[in-house]
């Protein structure tokens, strides 16, 4: 069980009485690792330039350090976007917190009672090897939710379907 240190920001009510968080999901670490690797490669440019062009050493390395500081700022933003982008599955609903950029975010939530269909997609070879993929949740409304590039696909799907089954059984009894 995962405990929340605060109510999901942007969700209208926070956690309800008797509501328990069953699973919190972030994107697979590989997604952030790709960005970090790209930053690392771009960060190597000053070394190539230094060996190709005769530039004054101190000024060159000072400029390179400023350049690396900008790259680290970009990496920090990428990490914040990765880390704050998450899905919370509780025993009542799914909360989708989508961090689009540093200051842009969208929080959606829907009740498991409205879930009609759950589909698991594994879109690529890398996703197959590293075992991540998408879960598409079709609700009774027109909107379908896609939980993208997450690990533990089968576990998440099982939890969602199990909770839906429990909710439907309770509804049938009452």
């Amino acid at each position: 069980m995962i405990t929340l240190n605060q109510s999901p920001p942007g969700s209208s009510t926070g956690l309800h009485e008797n509501e328990q968080v069953l699973l919190t999901l972030h994107r697979h670490w590989f997604i952030f690792a790709l960005q970090a690797t790209a930053v690392l490669f771009v960060g190597l440019f000053p070394f190539f330039i230094f060996f190709l062009l005769p530039i004054g050493a101190a000024l060159f390395w000072f400029s390179a350090v400023i350049y690396w500081l900008f790259l680290l700022a970009f990496l920090l933003i990428a990490w914040i976007e990765y880390w704050l982008d998450m899905w919370i599955i509780t025993n009542e609903r799914i909360i989708d917190i989508e961090q689009r950029s540093l200051f842009s975010r969208e929080v959606s939530e829907f009740f498991l009672a409205r879930v009609q269909d759950v589909t698991v997609e594994v879109p690529s070879l890398m996703a197959t090897v590293l075992r991540y993929g998408n879960i598409v949740v079709q609700t009774a409304g027109e909107k379908s939710f896609t939980i993208r590039e997450i690990p533990h696909l089968e576990q998440a799907k099982e939890i969602i379907l199990e909770q839906c089954r429990k909710i439907n059984m309770l509804d049938a009894k009452t």
């Binding site: 995962i2 929340l4 240190n5 914040i80 540093l102 200051f103």
Partner: peptide
């Protein structure tokens, strides 16, 4: 950036190592 990270962090986690 740090204010943003702390203000909107939801789940307790050890992954603060990366930041």
């Amino acid at each position: 950036a740090l204010w943003h990270l702390r203000a909107y962090r939801v789940a307790q986690s050890g992954n603060d190592r990366v930041s």
